[in-house]
Computed example of a mutant assay.
Amino acid sequence: MIDVSGLRRVYAEGGLSREDLTGEPMDLFEKWLRQAIDSGMPDPTGMVVSTVDGEGQPSSRMVLLKNYDRKSLVFFTNYGSRKALQLLNNPRVAILFPWFMLERQVAFLGHAEKLTPVEVVKYFTSRPRDSQIGAWTSHQSSRISARAALESKFMELKQKFSKGEIPVPTFWGGFRVFFHSVEFWQGRPSRLHDRFIYERNAAGGWDISRLAP
């Protein structure tokens, strides 16, 4: 086994003070997202989505952020996937943006709702054609015998949809996550990291607190 106990580095890229904060969490999130994109890191819109099954077992996976506003985050998936089925049963969800290259993390807590058909169609038609076919090919999270079966199905569907527009699969769509908590984490030396949490209050605004690292 690899001894990972001694693997560490000093976080010294910067800090996060109360003066850096914005009244709305998404203003700061957007600033950090732009810096993540400009940094050239791979998949700056990649986010870890964590859901819980009926027995209380959590599971996590990476998806891509495809839209956002001041109240929500949007991602797309197969409605037969494990995450989708779990969200339909229990809409509570956690989302994490692990921007390790910038020594930053942003964590959201909230609940998920299915997107409207209009929202799904609008995004699906914007995808590359092969990605559209890929959505038809994969019954996400189901067991398959071999990769060859997946590739064979893809080629079959590519031929089927060789002409005209590709319709949206009835089993494919997305979720909008409405968040009530946003935490910003900035790495600092000596593990004295900066953490600030925004929590939505009864008046619809945000209470901001500094958290111990």
Rank of each mutant, 00 (worst) to 15 (best):
Y198I: 08
A107H: 08
F75M: 09
M155G: 01
Y68Q: 14
A94C: 09
P167W: 07
K158F: 04
Y68K: 15
K163H: 13
E165G: 11
W172N: 00
D53M: 01
S190Q: 10
Y68V: 07
S81H: 09
F108M: 07
E55R: 10
T137E: 05
S60T: 05
E165K: 09
F97A: 03
G15Y: 02
A112T: 04
N78W: 02
L21I: 11
T170D: 14
H193C: 06
R70N: 13
L102H: 03
V63F: 08
P128I: 12
W172G: 01
V48E: 12
M155Y: 11
P213K: 01
N78C: 04
K83T: 05
E183I: 02
V10H: 13
K160L: 15
S162A: 15
Q105G: 13
H111W: 02
S5G: 05
S59K: 04
E151M: 06
I37L: 12
F75W: 11
R8M: 14
I208F: 01
L73S: 03
I2A: 08
S72Y: 03
E24W: 06
G23K: 07
R147E: 10
R195F: 06
S126K: 09
A107V: 10
K71D: 12
T116G: 11
S60H: 03
S50Q: 08
D43Q: 10
G174D: 11
P98F: 02
G40T: 02
G164V: 03
T77E: 13
I166N: 07
T77G: 13
L73K: 02
R195E: 07
S209I: 04
K71F: 07
S81K: 07
E156K: 05
I197F: 01
S5R: 15
A202W: 08
R200V: 07
A146V: 02
L157P: 00
L211H: 11
D20R: 11
G40R: 10
F179H: 04
R143G: 02
I37Q: 14
Y11A: 14
V177N: 00
D130Y: 15
E55A: 11
D69S: 07
F154H: 13
S141C: 06
M41W: 04
F76G: 02
V168A: 10
V177E: 00
I133F: 11
L64R: 03
L102T: 00
G134W: 05
T77C: 15
L115M: 15
S59T: 14
D53F: 02
T116K: 14
Y79T: 00
G134P: 01
W206N: 09
P189M: 10
M26G: 10
D207H: 03
F179T: 12
R210L: 07
V120T: 15
V106S: 11
S5W: 09
W32S: 02
S39V: 03
L73M: 10
G6L: 14
G173P: 00
D53C: 02
M62E: 05
M1Y: 13
G187A: 05
T116H: 11
S39C: 12
L211A: 13
E165C: 06
L192Q: 12
E113Q: 14
R143A: 13
R70L: 08
D43C: 06
E13T: 08
S50C: 12
F171L: 09
L7W: 10
E19G: 05
G54V: 08
I95N: 01
D27R: 13
K158V: 01
S131P: 03
